[in-house]
Amino acid sequence: MNTPVIETCGLRKTFCDFWHRPKVEAVVSLDLQVQAGEVFGLLGPNGSGKSTTIKLLLGLLHPSAGTIAVLGRPPTDVQVKARIGYLPEVSHLHAFLTPRETLRYYGSLFGLDAPTCRQRTEALLDMVDLRRAADRPVGEFSKGMARRVGLAQALVNNPDLLILDEPTSGLDPVACREVKDLVRLLARAGKTILLTSHLLADIEDVADRVAILHGGRLQAEGRVADLLRRADAVRFQVEGLTVDAAAAIRQELEMRTQCPVALDHPAMDLETYFLQVVARAANRDTVTTHFRPAEFLLANRGPGARTDG
C-alpha cells in the first residue's frame, strides 16, 4: 500500500473569463494521495471542487498550478488512460447506440480485439443486468439504466484505477447497494477506487479513507473509522435486558460519571430495512433486476488481482 496511485501536490484550478481574468477558484492547494487498492471517497457540498478535481485527475481540465501524477505519470498519458475506468456524474452516452454497441465501441477505443471485446461486453451486460435491453437504444433508457451502461463502460478495460463520480446517482436503493457491493468486490480484487457522492452513507459504507473539500480546499482527510470515532464517549449494546435492569444501570452510570446517560434501542438504517423488505418480496415474486458483479469479476480477473475475497 505504499505506491500512491494518485498524487497531487499544490494542485490549483482557477477558472478564468474570456479575458483571462480569474473568476472562480475551484481547487486551491490540494495535496492528495490515494494508495493502491484503496477505496477513497471525495466528499463535499455542491461547488466544493470534487468534480473539478476528478476532471483534473483525468486530464480533462488542465491545472493552473501544482502537479498531478496518476499511476506515476501525467494524467494525459495514453498509457495511464488505458488503465483508468471513469464514470462521469452524467453518463453522456450516445443515445442512438444500444448498450451492446456502446460497450463494444468503448472497448474498441481501448484497442481490445474483437473476441475479447465481445466477451467483456456480454459479461458486463450480465453484470449490470441489461442483457434483455442490450439491443435497445440507450436514449430510451431511464436514468438508472443509463447509469448501469455508464458503469459497465467504465469497467470494459478491466481498469486498475476506477474513478466514479456520483456512481449511485439515479439508482434505486437495491441498485445502490449492488453498486456498493461491486465497489467492495473491485477493491478486494486489487483495484484502486476514487469515488464521490452526495450520499454520505454510501461513502461511509465502502470507503477506506475520505477527504472532505469545501471551497476548493481540503478540510479533512483520514480513515473513515478514525474520523467518525468519538473517543470521549462509550456505547454498550446489550440484548435481553429488562427495563428495570436498564434503569438501574443508567442510574449507576449517571452517579459514577455525573453526566446524563443516553439510553435507546438500536435501530437498523433505512437502507438495510428497505433491502430486507425487497428481499422478502423477491422471494415471493420474480425479481426484476440486479447486478451480478461477482460473476463478472471472476470472469475478468486480472493477473495481479488479489484473491482474499
Binding site: 486530464g59 495514453v78 488512460k81 453522456h92 477505443l109 481501448f110 463502460q153
Partner: peptide
C-alpha cells in the same frame, strides 16, 4: 454536449 469526456479519457490520441 460534454459527450467527448467519455472518449477523451480513453487511450486515444
Amino acid at each position: 454536449s460534454r459527450r467527448i469526456e467519455l472518449t477523451a479519457v480513453k487511450p486515444v490520441q
